[in-house]
């Protein structure tokens, strides 16, 4: 599998990572190399093999749907790059 620059630009956008145009070419090469490497998986017969969802032999535990934690907004916000009046501040979303 070989990725072109446009595909890499599209994935980078989906992943919300700014990649400078001049790096797209080399990145396409590196990613293609990895995708070529993983193609060997097609040699494995996986007919009727279930995709693994949990490596431990246990079902995902459930908990009661109740509030057990909270009430410390100041701590939640303490690492925020920009906060005001009990909220995280981000650039304007709606024009």
């Amino acid at each position: 599998m070989s990725l072109d620059k446009a595909t890499v630009a599209k994935i980078a956008h989906l992943a919300r990572i700014k990649v400078p145009d001049e790096e797209l070419e080399s990145l396409a090469g590196e990613l293609s190399q990895i995708l070529t490497f993983v193609e060997q998986l097609n040699e494995v017969d996986t007919k009727d093999v279930p995709p693994m969802t949990s490596v431990a032999a246990q079902k995902l535990r459930r908990r009661k749907d109740e509030v057990t934690d909270g009430g410390y907004a100041a701590q939640v916000l303490s690492n925020g790059p920009e906060t005001a009046e009990g909220f995280f501040v981000v650039p304007k979303v709606v024009e």
């Binding site: 980078a12 990572i17 998986l41 097609n42 494995v44 995709p51 969802t53």
Partner: peptide
């Protein structure tokens, strides 16, 4: 980026699910 690609529409089965089957 690799992770985003293998999970993206149209590639999920070919890559991600295949890998999970091989993991089994």
């Amino acid at each position: 980026l690799i992770g985003t690609y293998v999970l993206s529409a149209g590639y999920y089965d070919a890559y991600y699910n295949k890998a999970r089957q091989v993991r089994t």
